[in-house]
Nucleic acid binder design. Structure first.
Lengths: 170, 170
DNA sequence: TTCAATAGTCACGGATTTCGCAGCTAAGGG
DNA sequence: CCCTTAGCTGCGAAATCCGTGACTATTGAA
């Protein structure tokens, strides 16, 4: 992520409550993000009215947030309704350097989510597959075949109870 | 998610081959979704040109996909840049019925992701917190205090390597 | 202090997009 | 066969988007 520094609007200095070096986001941009988390296609003018800014200012801030990689506006689908019926979280233990393994996992289309962790797993990966055969192939043939992978443990999803994208909205 | 049945466009009957309840999305809608996964604000006319449909048709299909809950168009942020510096996956073992515990977790703002699993954990939860104190409080004071929770195991995130929202784009 | 230089915002067109509606066609059901 | 439903198209009117130039603080250096 780029660490571009957003000019701090000193007007509302209370905004810098939670953060310092890594908080390039002021309260107004946060409010804009919240608006777009409710509806990614909301018009700039409507957002401006909600956050107290002109349409053009909102547009520029949104563009900057997108350019900086702070947020992205995308369609998010329910995997089940688009044909992916088997999902699993896979915990992985690695021998030696984690990075090459993580890179290889990242390159797999079926791995939606790859994270290095502290604890009894070195890596955790969310795998999204079409069916059981597909899932089996990914885990047993591709993940476990990666050099450095010592062991894996799978947690097949039975029911997804919650999935939000509301970071920063609290 | 709602299980509303999308009217099958018999034009592309190959899609509903063995299809019944779980294949409500035809190829054209999938193409539309892919366009919106690249850019959630892409104009309907541009999408129409890409998928071979009129602007109005794209608009109607997008609206239907949103109404049905098949997809949503939202802003997704990088937790780190918006002030959430500690994340963890928490595996949970439960005594008795899973549902009440899952419901309680779902109600917590810090729990972004709650899923019931098969394997050595009954539930897996992704927790997003501002700092270590916050994380400790959520895990030790709130999650472990829930009635029915027998044990938990935490995997603190060290580095997020991949996070996509490309279901259906493959 | 003074003076650029910079960043952020606003205002205001013209181009583009969105929106609502009417009409058309094909598929099914009675 | 008639009727209904669902989906698509085309077309104006309204709204939105987008580029641009001017204005205002703020910063940093002379």
């Amino acid at each position: 992520m780029h660490h571009g520094v957003v000019a701090s609007r000193s007007a509302d200095s209370s905004s810098s409550r939670h953060g310092n070096s890594s908080s390039p986001i002021d309260a107004v941009s946060l409010a804009i993000i919240e608006q777009l988390q409710e509806d990614g296609r909301r018009p700039y003018a409507a957002i401006g009215k909600a956050v107290g800014l002109s349409e053009a200012a909102v547009r520029q801030r949104v563009q900057k947030l997108l350019d900086q990689g702070v947020m992205q506006i995308v369609a998010v689908t329910d995997p089940l309704t688009v044909g992916f019926r088997r999902q699993a979280m896979v915990g992985i233990n690695v021998e030696g350097d984690l990075d090459p393994v993580a890179e290889a996992l990242t390159a797999m289309a079926e791995c939606e989510y790859v994270v290095m962790t502290a604890g009894s797993f070195d890596l955790m990966v969310e795998v999204v597959c079409e069916d059981d055969d597909h899932l089996l192939e990914v885990i047993n043939k591709r993940i476990r075949a990666l050099p450095g992978v010592r062991s894996t443990e799978s947690f097949v999803y039975l029911k997804l109870k919650k999935q939000t994208y509301m970071w920063g909205t609290r």
